[in-house]
Design a binder for these strands. Structure first.
Lengths: 168, 168
DNA sequence: TATTCTATGATACACTTGTCTCGCGGGAAA
DNA sequence: TTTCCCGCGAGACAAGTGTATCATAGAATA
């Protein structure tokens, strides 16, 4: 008898393996269970459905997405640094983000950016327009996602320059 | 025999009516077809599924408002105009957007903005950085969504000024 | 008026989803 | 060793999805 965590792990990795070969929508619960070597009922005992598997995976590694030091940008160089940092973490987790996107769960990342930028701005400039962090988060999020669509082929400096030039 | 456009319209409005009363996930294609007064097969003749109906809505109901004039911003006043326009349409369609958000389908609106901004920039400035339209779309999208969270209580001029000041 | 055209509803079908039982079998406790 | 526990696979089941076929009503055309 396996531990519950092991069973979950088998299921998660099975889905990821399948997602390398097949389109997310085409993958059926039966396929995942078979690949994981468990019964379909077992799958449903641990997960509500396919999407729940992805959510589970990301909830267990959200910490890795936190970008290094939360410096508040005071000059153009700081802006470049923060923006490059965000893109850097994104690129380092390219594959998980591709899975997120395919599962229509990318907004979890946007929520994450919103939360972090809001806190950053609130600490430093409580007086500033409260929508400003969302403005930054939104453009970083969307550019990141389109960058991902292009398989992150442009280098980070180019993207960072685009962002910073546009807002500075 | 109804025109095809009418039939599509019945289906779209039927879905939106149902979304007032029921959770998006609980609404079945059969329900939509019944509410629209058409057969289920007719639904599938025009739409690939529920989500496709929402996409259609944004393609055909919002396009004329947002990009009817299709001015490409050349000065600060143009920027204010375009941005105010986007927020204006958003506010005018506040209720549908709230439904979208509840259904976790807001990214369809982001897709819509991306598509339109890309086309606008491509026509006017084929040489510009191709990520620029996504930068604008992303920040407008995210600020709009947070604005919606606040029940659109701030007035459009304030928001438009924030955006334009940030990028100009 | 007669004929063609076509959007439609009805219906059947294969497949997937999500829920629910039931009995097996291996590990832990007695 | 024996008994109990419980995660698990197997499979049944209702409901929803998406596709395909077919006959029909009614508008357009001749």
């Amino acid at each position: 008898m396996e531990s519950e965590e092991y069973t979950k792990h088998y299921i998660v990795t099975a889905l990821f393996k399948l997602m390398h070969a097949y389109e997310y929508e085409k993958i059926k619960v039966t396929d995942i269970a078979q690949k994981a070597g468990v019964g379909r009922a077992t799958f449903y005992r641990y997960f509500k459905g396919k999407e729940d598997v992805i959510t589970y995976y990301f909830e267990h590694r959200t910490r890795e997405f936190v970008f290094g030091q939360r410096i508040y940008p005071r000059c153009k160089e700081d802006y470049v640094k923060v923006v490059s940092d965000v893109f850097g973490v994104f690129e380092a987790n390219k594959e998980p983000f591709q899975l997120l996107k395919r599962a229509h769960l990318s907004d979890l990342y946007l929520n994450f950016l919103n939360k972090n930028f809001s806190e950053m701005f609130a600490e430093e400039h409580p007086d500033k327009n409260p929508y400003l962090p969302y403005l930054y988060a939104g453009m970083l999020y969307n550019v990141s996602m389109q960058w991902l669509e292009n398989d992150c082929k442009e280098d980070i400096q180019t993207l960072a320059a685009l962002i910073v030039d546009a807002i500075y």
